[in-house]
Simulated scan of single mutants.
Amino acid sequence: MKIIRRSVAIVVAAAVAGVAGITGAAADSSQRSGPAQSPARSSSASAEKADRHWRHGKPAIAGAWEKAWNSKDPKRLAALFTGDGRYSDHALGQTFKGRDGVAQWATVTKQFVGNAKVKVNSAFADDGQVAISWTFSGHLAGAPKPFSVPAATILRMRGNKIVTNDDYYNRADVLSQSGLPADTVFN
């Protein structure tokens, strides 16, 4: 569990730092004046390219991922992936491959976690990868109480499709908040 907590802490810290860095870079570039020179033009071209994939301060894929998870249709999440995509939930040690596997994972999650909800808090993209800081909430089947835990996801992209999705959150926190013993097994 310490390794997972540390990984999540590192990813969340990177997400916060990345968002702060992107915000700072945007503020810095908005204060510049005068004609663009070649290094600035190259930087500007990169910013324009990145901007096409952003909506309301976060990568568009993060918003689409959140909406797909909160949808009742598991194929909506699967459609975000490449045909050979992979979804891994590291807290549970589960990996699903291909769009059918992703749809299966979404279906199983919705069956096992009542009122499952994903809330993206922040996200940033760099060099074909997207880091997402989010909150995972719901009510485990048979558990006396609901849960709400911080989570982090790293997406590796191919164009505008997800190739890999790696979720990190603390399973012990989910169980504890749900009123279940920490050694509860999911299989």
Results as ranks from 00 to 15, higher is better:
Ile4Ala: 07
Asn187Thr: 13
Gly93Pro: 09
Arg32Glu: 11
Gly101Trp: 05
Thr184Leu: 03
Asn115Arg: 14
Val19His: 10
His139Leu: 02
Ser137Leu: 08
Arg52Trp: 10
Asn160Ile: 00
Lys58Pro: 00
Asn121Arg: 15
Ala68Thr: 01
Pro146Asn: 00
Ala45Phe: 03
Lys72Cys: 01
Thr184Gly: 01
Asp51Ile: 00
Ala78Thr: 04
Arg171Trp: 07
Ser133Ile: 05
Leu80Cys: 04
Val163Gln: 13
Ala131Phe: 14
Arg158Thr: 04
Met157Ser: 03
Ile10Tyr: 03
Gly21Pro: 04
Pro150Asp: 15
Val8Phe: 05
Ala78Tyr: 11
Thr82Glu: 11
Ala40Trp: 08
Ala36Tyr: 07
Ala45Met: 08
Ser133Pro: 00
Asp183Tyr: 02
Asp89Gln: 10
Ser38His: 05
Ala60Trp: 00
Gly63Tyr: 11
Lys49His: 05
Ser44Met: 11
Ile162Ser: 05
Ala182His: 04
Lys110Asp: 15
Tyr169Asp: 12
Gly128Phe: 08
Arg32Gly: 01
Asn160Cys: 03
Val12Pro: 02
Trp54Lys: 04
Arg86Ile: 13
Pro150Ala: 11
Trp65Thr: 03
Met157Trp: 05
Glu66Asn: 12
Ala64Thr: 01
Gly18Gln: 09
Gln177Val: 02
Asp51His: 15
Asp51Tyr: 08
Val19Leu: 11
Asn165Pro: 00
Gly63Leu: 14
Gly21Trp: 13
Ala26Leu: 09
Arg171Asp: 06
Pro74Ile: 02
Thr135Gln: 06
Gln129Pro: 01
Ser29Cys: 00
Ala13Gln: 15
Pro39Gly: 05
Asp84Cys: 03
Leu140Met: 11
Phe186Asn: 05
Met1Ser: 09
Ser176Arg: 13
Ala27Leu: 15
Lys110Arg: 15
Ser44Asp: 15
Ile162Leu: 06
Ala13Pro: 04
Ala78Asn: 01
Asn121Phe: 00
Ser29Phe: 11
Gly179Lys: 06
